[in-house]
Structures are given as structure tokens and as C-alpha cells.
Nucleic acid binder design. Structure first.
Lengths: 227, 227
DNA sequence: TGACAAAGTAACCATTTCGTACAATCGTGA
DNA sequence: TCACGATTGTACGAAATGGTTACTTTGTCA
């Protein structure tokens, strides 16, 4: 959609490309907020990092909080889009759960910016999430998918009874999130680099193993690895 | 020790009590940093919150970063003291692991300030942890304790082989940490209040269950609750 | 082609914010 | 009691920061 706008602009002979400017500001701002936090990021620095000027930031986003909110909304819209594109209905419950956990882990690991943005937002008590129209309107499908997988697993007799989908989600999220969010302090204190390829791979397997062991009935053999 | 100093000061007729002033600043600063982050916290606001003046902050801590570092060191020293006071050697491996997990979960839940401070430090890439002499000198016993428990469990044949103590630690920490760190966004997005008494209690049980299921061999019956 | 809106620039302003200079006070040992 | 270092209060300054104003350029369409 970004490229469409640019292509259109170029095709019609336009030199101006508002959408590109907007996007450019958004990206630069995201890097800044994610790197220094809301108060730590400097509007002047962000402006300097864009292809345009400070005036444009205010032109498009109103003020600093508006810019931050736009970055936040963009991030949440993105992950929701991914969630909705998933179709795990074809997979058997155990395989579906394995896939969902792995994908969640990977998404966090591959998108540290998202993780850090959520950290920043939590530091601010989710104040901006509260007031965002756009995010409020998003229906988060993660829980629904889990609920479905869990129900199917119960029916098949491969999952234990008595687990709340939200609990399952919290477990998967926690194990995926922490790995990115606390990378710096863990490395500093324990000398363990969670970002390293090997460590990450092993951790991914452990997380999946942890989730399956929590949910599955004892009989199931879950030892084979997934792609 | 705070009270000792004050008692001594009062007893000897001192009106000045540097240690109390220091401590008072530290506490006020912690609240501020934890609530607004490093850049978001205002020195003037912190000063206003103390029983003394801004001048004293600079007198004792040099600058804003020095104050922040002192707050961070204080927090880490505290948790380390708690860790070292634990004695789980008397407990059987499974009980020891159950206790350690429960205590870790409780410590995080009861000390949100610590959790938020670690979040802030991670946002800043653990830059201050790196340069802190005092924290560098702390030997973190958490891993050693886990290593010991795990070794005993292996010997007794109640734990599975092939698990790394660091992995175990990451799992326990993640499940304890996330519950506090992401309270705001979870509540906002899923309407689930993790701070609520009931939710917290249930979550605690689930976390312990999760850890035990990960580590224990299938035969063991782990269904009874702990205090 | 020229009026008008959208997009963009550069210089500027009012506050806030960290940090300091200077002087005063306190506690203690000689 | 007095000298001297530790401690504390007041007022102030320089730089940074968020935000704005006045003005130019670009593109559309009657």
C-alpha cells in the first residue's frame, strides 16, 4: 500500500508523496520511541532522522503523544493482521498448539520493536492504549483461536480439562515476550545471550515443550521437533 | 538499619541524619523512576517529594543518572539478600522447586517496583547495570540454587534429564515477571485483571504446575497444592 | 492561467529541566 | 570556643525541548 501510493505518485508525475512522508516519520519515530522510551525520544532527533522536517510531524500527528499513539496503533494493527491470517483449523489440536506457540515465539523474536513498544506502553500504564479508538476497535483473535484449539483437544481427549484459554495465552505470551524484553539484563547478569541463534533455537523448543506439557494429558508423546 | 541510624541520631542529640536523607531521596526517586521511566522522571518533582531539597540529590548522587543507578543498585541488592536467605536444601527436590517457583512468583507480585525498574533498565539496554560496580560484584545465587535442586532431582529419579538450569530459571522468571510487567496492556486488551486476588492466586498455581510439568518425569503425582 | 488547497521549510518562542554558585548551618575534635 | 569538614537552603543560569508562526512551493481544477 505504501508502494502503491508511491507508484501512483510517480506515475502521475507528482513530486509530493504525503503517504510516504507519513510512513517515513512513523518508522523513524518508532525506532526512537523503542530505543529511548516515550519521554526519552526527542522530537528534534526524530525530525532529523526523517527525510522531512519537524513541522511535518506536527502537521500530520499533532503532538508528541499523537505521534506515539500512531506508532502504537500501527504496531498493534500489524500483529492483528498476522493473527487473522492464521488458519490453524486444519491442524490437529496438538499440532495447532505447537504451531501457534512457535509462531508467537518467532513473532516476538523477529519483532523486538513490537516487544519494546509494549514495554514502554506498560511503563505508562497503558494510558495511550486506553484512549486509542483504533486499537479499542481491534478484536484480538488470539484468545479465540486458543479457545478453539483447546476445545478440539478436549474433545479428542488429548488435552487435560480445567485450563482457561486466557491462562494458556498468558503462558505462551510470557515465555515469548520475556525472551526479548529482558534480553539486556539477562545478558548482563547471567552472561547468557538470548539473542544468539543457538540459544534462541533451544529456547524455542523448550517453550513449545513447556506449553504442550502443561496442556496435554500424560499419555501423548510429544518429543518430535517441529519445523 | 534505617531506623537504627535514626534512633542513634536522635539518641545522641543529632539533628542531622544523612543516612535518613539519603534513604528518603532513594525511596522518592524509586517511585518516580518506576512510574515515569528514567527520562520521564523529573529531578524537581523528586526533590519536591523528599523531606529535603534538590541540592541534596546532587550532593549525594552527583546527577540524575547517578541517582538512578543508586536506585537500581538498591533494588538488586535487596533481591539478592532475599535469595541468599533462602535455604531449600532441607526440602526434597520437587518440594524445593515448588517452593522456589512460588517464592519467585510472590516476590515479583509483591514488588512491582522491582519489576518496573528492570523494565526501565531493559529499555535502556542495561546500560547502567553494565557500569555498576556494585551490581557487577553481586553473585546471583538463583541459578546455583536451581542447579542444586535439579541435580538432586535427577539423582532421585524424579526429574527428566537434559534440562539446563538457565532454561529453568528463564521459565520461572518469565512466568513471574510477565504477570506484573504486562498487567496494564493485558487488562486493556483482554479485560483480564492479573492484579486481582483470585486471578493472581490461580495464576500462581498454574505457574507452579507449568514448571513442575516441565521438569518432572511423567510418573510423579504433582496435583496437591502448596501453601 | 490563475485561484485555491495541500504539502513543506526555516526561523523562532516560551517553558521546562538539569545542574550550579554561594552562603549558611551543624557537629566535633583540638 | 574555634577551626574545619560535612551538610543544607536559596536563587539562578544555560541548554534543551516541545510547539508555533510566517511564508514558500506544489498540484488541481474551473
Amino acid at each position: 500500500m505504501r508502494d502503491d501510493a508511491q507508484a501512483e505518485a510517480v506515475a502521475s508525475g507528482w513530486k509530493q508523496d504525503p503517504d510516504a512522508v507519513r510512513q517515513n516519520i512513523l518508522e523513524t519515530a518508532r525506532r526512537a520511541f523503542v530505543d529511548k522510551g516515550l519521554s526519552g525520544a526527542r522530537i528534534d532527533a526524530i525530525a532529523a532522522g526523517t527525510a522531512t522536517s519537524k513541522r511535518m510531524i506536527y502537521y500530520y500527528f499533532g503532538d508528541k503523544e499523537g505521534l506515539y499513539r500512531a506508532v502504537l496503533e500501527d504496531a498493534y494493527t500489524r500483529i492483528r493482521r498476522l493473527e487473522q491470517s492464521l488458519d490453524l483449523a486444519a491442524l490437529a489440536p496438538i499440532e495447532a498448539l505447537r504451531a501457534l506457540t512457535g509462531l508467537t515465539f518467532d513473532y516476538h523474536a523477529n519483532n523486538p520493536d513490537f516487544v519494546r513498544l509494549v514495554m514502554v506502553e506498560n511503563i505508562h500504564h497503558a494510558r495511550h492504549l486506553k484512549t486509542s479508538q483504533r486499537i479499542g476497535a481491534l478484536n484480538h483473535t488470539a484468545i479465540d483461536m486458543l479457545r478453539d484449539i483447546y476445545a478440539r483437544g478436549l474433545e479428542d481427549g488429548v488435552f487435560r480439562a480445567g485450563i482457561e484459554p486466557i491462562d494458556l495465552h498468558l503462558t505462551i505470551s510470557a515465555l515469548s515476550f520475556y525472551n526479548v524484553s529482558n534480553q539486556s539484563t539477562i545478558k548482563q547478569i547471567f552472561g547468557h545471550d538470548m539473542a544468539h541463534q543457538n540459544a534462541r533455537g533451544r529456547r524455542r523448543a523448550t517453550v513449545i515443550e513447556t506449553v504442550l506439557r502443561l496442556v496435554c494429558v500424560a499419555e501423548a508423546d510429544r518429543s518430535e521437533a517441529d519445523g
